[in-house]
Design a binder for these strands. Structure first.
Lengths: 209, 209
DNA sequence: TCGCGCATCGGTCTTGGGACCGATACGGCC
DNA sequence: GGCCGTATCGGTCCCAAGACCGATGCGCGA
């Protein structure tokens, strides 16, 4: 029997979830919470196997509540169920430790299936959330385009970020030391850096390496 | 009508998928491929909306075929369907551009639903793959433990990696410049670095920043 | 008790890094 | 033709960085 806690600030939603859960074989509602703080409290007291967590709640939002529950009781699995399909919600929930993220318009049967998946230790996301997560995995936010530097400067920058000295860069690019120094100097100005260390940091932040 | 290409080296599997697809409303099989190379060829010729792609195939594996198809025809969506649930497969497929990743033991009805999701532009993964992707998102591989340095040295290292000068670090830690220099010097030796730039690189590679 | 690792501090010395000055050449653009 | 951005190169100057030497005090385990 999978013991479920329902956390949502709307009583109607809670009741609806409770009916759905209790009618599903193998599931049982063991508690309700109307705020994030309540969810944490009840989660600590009743140790449910699964928490259906809303994001927007008074006192404490669902993300923060998820963070605390997951931190204190890792065996408790949290399934985020929200009306709004926002990036920050998804990323925040996952960072907080949620095992799943679904929208409230998910058909009941699918919700039950999803709860089984989550309770079994696997994870599951709404398709839109999946797409975004994959997107971020494949193409992590690269603020590289923000660097307003020339192509040659970019080449020099990556070599600097590889730890090469100006002399080594000069050899590598078949130019004189003076030229490299000029490029580095221009880079320092353009990127508002004091030393080449800042250039390395900028390169890493821009995902150039 | 969603036009589907089935790529799998086993004729039995292809036939099975074809029957399933053609019996589903809104779907139509437009081609088959027994190798990755064939999949690329047929994909280029027939421009299917969706490709059911196996990973292990002769001539060219499904990952590489996916990479080429996605590179040339971004509107073609690839759903990876494989027997084996391996990390490299999942990550490789996603990097290659696949929009989904399912196991061959997926029930037919769910496969059809998944194909609808994929065709609609969203993404979908098998629960085990979802869990792993989330895991990697939340807790990216951190080679931080590998650094054999003292606690104080670690503190200095992160400040170096933030771009601070030795003097600034000294102020920040309420110690003398000499002390900082000693720590930096020890760090350079321990991490086999020639300059502080290498320290910054090491810090970033170790995910210390 | 002695040794060892760690953190702390000071000194000297060399060198690469960076600021700042200058210059030439090439290509695109109005 | 003239302007501008870019890439190239040279020189001078200064200083932070780093190597290398020394030292002290503290805690911990053999």
């Amino acid at each position: 029997m999978i013991r479920v806690l329902v956390a949502d600030d709307q009583a109607l939603i809670r009741a609806s979830f409770r009916r759905l859960i209790d009618s599903a074989p193998g599931f049982q509602t063991v508690g309700e919470a109307a705020t994030g703080a309540q969810a944490v409290t009840v989660g600590a007291r009743d140790r449910p196997d699964l928490v259906l967590m809303d994001v927007r709640m008074p006192e404490m939002n669902g993300i923060e509540a998820t963070r605390r529950i997951c931190a204190d009781y890792p065996q408790t699995r949290v399934l985020m169920v929200t009306t709004f399909d926002l990036d920050e919600y998804v990323y925040g929930a996952l960072q907080a430790g949620a095992a799943g993220f679904l929208l409230k318009d998910t058909p009941p049967a699918e919700l039950i299936r999803s709860m089984n998946v989550i309770a079994s230790g696997e994870s599951l996301l709404a398709p839109t959330a999946t797409r975004r997560l994959i997107q971020r995995f494949v193409n992590p936010p690269s603020r590289a385009g923000g660097l307003d530097i020339t192509e040659r400067e970019r080449e020099v920058l990556v070599l600097v970020a590889r730890g090469m000295s100006n002399a080594e860069i000069a050899q590598s690019l078949y130019v004189s030391l003076s030229t490299v120094k000029t490029h580095v100097s221009n880079l320092l100005t353009k990127l508002d850096a004091r030393t080449r260390v800042h250039l390395v940091i900028a390169a890493y932040e821009a995902r150039l390496v």
